[in-house]
């Protein structure tokens, strides 16, 4: 994490909290898919929300993509919007694993389920560790034809100041599956997060 004045100790602390939360989400996903998930350390970065469309344009521009968005609210001014981005090609692999037909209407349901597992389990794990608790709005699925992802991202990230990018890469036993999780958060949340991290660091 390079920007917005996180100290090395704060960065390490946030990374560890995220690793633990991601471990919970992976376990849940593995149970859902009935397979073993090879967990990699998610790389995290905090950037201005306005940079998000450009950052993800390359990876998603030449492919059909889907975006699942879900709002979250907690105490101490912790709130934001969690976005999970998929290449549809990846989503089809998971559909196949779960026995859905490609192009099936219920593939949208499947995406909602997986995103919900990833985001709510992940965010609950995060909230637990910072002694917070979150509630969620219903997830929205937005899918896009080739070349359209940046406008979807523009519309979604427009209202927010910062974005915590969490690059998730899952290797299932015979499949690889990548998606990106982006947590869009308001400006004051960064100061709140730093204060919470300092409080944790003081304990140790």
């Amino acid at each position: 994490m390079s920007t917005l004045g996180f100290s090395e100790e704060q960065r390490d602390c946030l990374q560890e909290i995220i690793n633990v939360a991601m471990g919970l989400a992976s376990d849940k996903l593995a149970r859902f898919l009935n397979t073993f998930v090879h967990l990699q350390v998610p790389s995290i970065a905090l950037v201005g929300a306005s940079h998000i469309p450009a950052e993800f344009e390359n990876r998603y521009q030449d492919t059909e993509a889907a975006l699942v968005s879900q709002g979250f609210f907690g105490n101490e001014g912790v709130r934001g919007e969690a976005i999970v981005l998929y290449q549809m090609e990846n989503a089809h692999k998971i559909s196949a694993l779960l026995g859905y037909e490609v192009g099936d209407v219920s593939e949208i349901e499947m995406l909602t389920d997986i995103s919900s597992i990833l985001t709510t389990t992940f965010l609950n794990g995060l909230a637990d560790q910072i002694e917070n608790s979150l509630s969620y709005s219903a997830p929205r699925v937005l899918s896009s034809a080739k070349g359209d992802i940046s406008s979807l991202l523009k519309n979604t990230s427009f209202h927010w100041e910062h974005a915590l990018k969490v690059d998730i890469s899952y290797q299932l036993i015979d499949h690889s599956f990548n998606c990106d999780m982006i947590l869009l958060i308001p400006g004051e949340a960064v100061t709140n997060i730093q204060r919470i991290l300092d409080r944790i660091l003081e304990e140790y």
Binding site: V20, M22, G23, S26, F36, L39
Partner: peptide
């Protein structure tokens, strides 16, 4: 471990 899968 953060990876808590039973298989692990």
């Amino acid at each position: 471990s953060a990876d808590i899968q039973p298989e692990m």
